[in-house]
């Protein structure tokens, strides 16, 4: 479990973090997103103990790690595995040698080190690349080795700054799978900085939006997508085209967010039947948030009982996010 309390950090008098407070529950994955220059990397570097904050605390399992020095600092660093931004592998060492580095730092003896390196290569699915040098690996493979290295010393927190920024979608998937396995199989708490919403969709339980050095939105991903006021929600959910011409043909137009079973069930057709309204899908689609299927549709309804139908959909567990036409805020 990791807690960030009121963290501030300035560079030459220019504030980069203006009081950041965050919680990451044990064994969960937090995504930190936000525009360029928001302070995401600065936050990550503070948590990685590469940058000392001006004020505030960072607690890992209750202990403030910001003021440590010497041996205590090095020990704390072993509690936090870091996948730094960009290429960070030793190019003169094999994949296995790179993963062994934190174990050498921790003074783990040779035979145990080899066993552990084997386990980690297995975890990231690169056992056959043990003897390859970084220049013989693809970008995605290098990044997975970097994750294995970060996990080698058995940290309780894993921190990754833009781990997929230079990768294509397919390779991104393989790296995210590894991060997800780390959480699932090793129980580590993961903090991942990203500008890619697909990373949040695929592996994050929670998301924090950083803007201009402040957290402007923070919460569980599944809660935020049904929150009408959330700006993150629209970037996480399937997009709908704006098509006012089309929409003018209906009595009511609404955005419906369906989560879990409801997303794959026949809720919408049933509502149409029950209330005798004509219900058309104007846009939207399906996605997944972690393992959970989620749908967001823009629907157009025609018929006297259109409002009742929307209300019923809402009562059935869907979030009717916005009634774009007709009475506002039917439900949620």
């Amino acid at each position: 479990m990791i807690t960030v309390e009121n963290l501030t950090k300035s560079f030459q008098g220019v504030p980069a973090l203006k009081g950041v407070t965050l919680d990451v529950q044990s064994g969960s994955v937090l995504g930190v997103v936000g525009p360029s220059g928001a302070g995401k990397s600065t936050l990550a570097r503070c948590v990685a103990l590469l940058e000392r904050p001006d004020s505030g605390a960072i607690r890992v399992d209750g202990t403030d790690i910001t003021a440590l020095g010497g041996t205590a600092l090095r020990n704390a660093r072993r509690q936090i595995g870091v996948v730094p931004q960009g290429d960070s592998l030793l190019r003169q060492r094999t994949a296995a040698g790179n993963i062994a580095l934190p174990l050498e730092s921790a003074g783990v003896p040779g035979p145990q080190r080899r066993t552990r390196v084997g386990e980690l290569l297995d975890l990231v699915g690169l056992t056959d690349k043990a003897g390859s040098y970084p220049d013989q690996l693809s970008g995605g493979q290098r990044q997975r080795i970097a994750v294995a290295r970060a996990l080698a010393a058995g940290p309780s927190v894993l921190l990754a700054d833009e781990p997929t920024s230079a990768l294509d979608p397919e390779t991104t998937g393989s790296v995210l799978t590894v991060l997800d396995r780390a959480r699932a199989e090793l129980g580590v708490t993961v903090l991942v900085v990203t500008h890619d919403m697909s990373v949040v969709r695929k592996i994050c339980d929670d998301v924090a939006v950083l803007e201009d050095g402040r957290v402007v939105e923070n919460g569980r991903v599944l809660d935020l997508v049904t929150d009408a006021a959330s700006r993150t929600a629209s970037t996480l959910l399937p997009a709908v085209d704006q098509n006012p011409v089309n929409e003018s043909a209906y009595d009511r137009v609404a955005d419906v967010v369906l989560i879990g079973f409801a997303a794959v069930g026949a809720l919408l057709p049933e509502a149409a039947n029950r209330f005798g309204v004509e219900l058309n899908l104007l846009g939207g689609g399906f996605t997944r948030l972690g393992e959970t299927p989620v749908a967001r549709f823009r629907v157009g309804l025609t018929g006297e009982r259109a409002d009742s139908a929307l209300e019923w959909i809402s009562d059935a567990g869907a979030a009717v996010r916005r009634t774009l036409k007709g009475p506002q805020g039917v439900a949620a």
Binding site: N75, I80, D87, S88, R149
Partner: peptide
């Protein structure tokens, strides 16, 4: 980034 990665291992 290579040096910092080593720093974060507690070396």
């Amino acid at each position: 980034s290579v040096v910092e990665a080593a720093v974060t291992t507690g070396a």
